[in-house]
């Protein structure tokens, strides 16, 4: 890239070659490895017992495998599955956005903001999500009308009937799951932010970066390394928590299967169907979590060549533009 006298005009000396060893590298040590007999024996016992368990499960006539197959890809299951995924995704988006907002508020030196965040987290973490789901669904009972206006002045911009608003099950479901998740996410984002070295904040501030810019460009990207594993955990948890909306007649996957087995009494096979799908989805989530972790682990293992390449590509794109 540069000529041999590339160190011209430089202050620091170039790194010199390392001293040579006295002899060529000798052959590596050959030794008899330790035999882990205990491990082999215990593994054999575990495999034997697991095989027996799986065999007994597969051959158990009470599982009714034909029924499992019948429902596994039934339109009813798949429609429910779609709602399960939709609820999980939307609730987690609300949860993540709300969580970052609440965490930043909570850490703010503005006592009003941090107070609001504290009360929010206190309420939504302090009541069961099951209760929250039912409360939102019954919004119409204690606030029949939702009015937008200035309190105490009689000025009204508009109003809506809350009964109609929450009559579509998905509305109270998303409200309950998303707002509840935001409270939990806020705490884990806050933990992530606190984990970033205080020197990072100072370095950014000393460069003239504003507190907001510092948060966005320096602190949050590093906090993500800590947040992602726990957030993945939260997503998996949310996937399963969506099954609670069966309580308000929500027709996500488990709700639908439950509705069927309460009529047909095919309880075990339909529970097996639900488990298979939940396991499949959590496996997908585990894989994408690993990808995200690798992305936010930047600077903690990424190859130098890769970074150089990316920058060269960007530069090329600019000169062409």
């Amino acid at each position: 890239m540069e000529s041999s006298d590339q160190y011209d005009g430089q202050v620091a000396p170039a790194e010199s070659g390392l001293p040579a060893p006295a002899a060529a590298r000798p052959e590596s040590i050959k030794a008899v490895p330790i035999r882990h007999w205990g491990r082999w024996i215990s593994a054999a016992i575990v495999v034997y017992l697991m095989a027996a368990l799986v065999y007994s499960f597969i051959t158990n006539s009470n599982v009714e495998w034909p029924t499992v197959w019948e429902y596994l890809f039934a339109p009813l299951t798949l429609r429910g599955l779609a709602l399960t995924i939709e609820l999980t995704v939307i609730s987690m988006i609300i949860g993540a956005a709300g969580g970052v907002l609440l965490a930043v508020m909570r850490l703010s030196d503005n006592p009003v903001l941090s107070g609001i965040a504290w009360v929010y987290i206190w309420f939504f973490r302090g009541t069961p999500v099951y209760v929250q789901i039912i409360l939102w669904a019954n919004l119409g009972v204690f606030y029949p009308k939702l009015i937008a206006g200035l309190p105490f002045t009689g000025i009204v911009f508009g109003s809506t009937d809350s009964g109609t608003l929450v009559s579509r099950i998905i509305v109270p479901a998303i409200l309950a799951l998303g707002l509840n998740e935001a409270a939990y996410a806020a705490e884990l984002v806050r933990a992530g932010i606190i984990s970033v070295d205080a020197g990072q904040n100072e370095a950014a501030l000393s460069l003239g970066m504003s507190p907001t810019l510092t948060m966005r460009r320096v602190v949050l990207p590093q906090a993500m390394r800590v947040i992602i594993p726990t957030f993945g955990n939260e997503t998996i948890s949310m996937l399963k928590t969506t099954s609670l909306i069966a309580a308000i007649g929500g027709l996500e996957m488990f709700g639908r299967l439950q509705a069927v087995y309460s009529q047909t009494f095919q309880i075990i096979p339909l529970l097996v169907v639900a488990c298979i799908w939940y396991l499949f989805l959590t496996s997908l989530l585990t894989v994408s979590q690993a990808r995200l972790e690798a992305y936010f682990g930047k600077g903690f293992g990424e190859k130098e060549a890769e970074a150089a390449e990316k920058r060269a590509a960007r530069r090329a794109a600019r000169t062409h533009a």
Partner: peptide, 30 residues
Amino acid sequence: VAKQRSHVGMVFQRFNLFPHMTAIENVMEA
């Protein structure tokens, strides 16, 4: 305050480089 600070450079005992940015990204950021 940020504007005033942008005219004053500071170097720290523990470097405080941004670990998620390469050397050149660290220098370009501000």
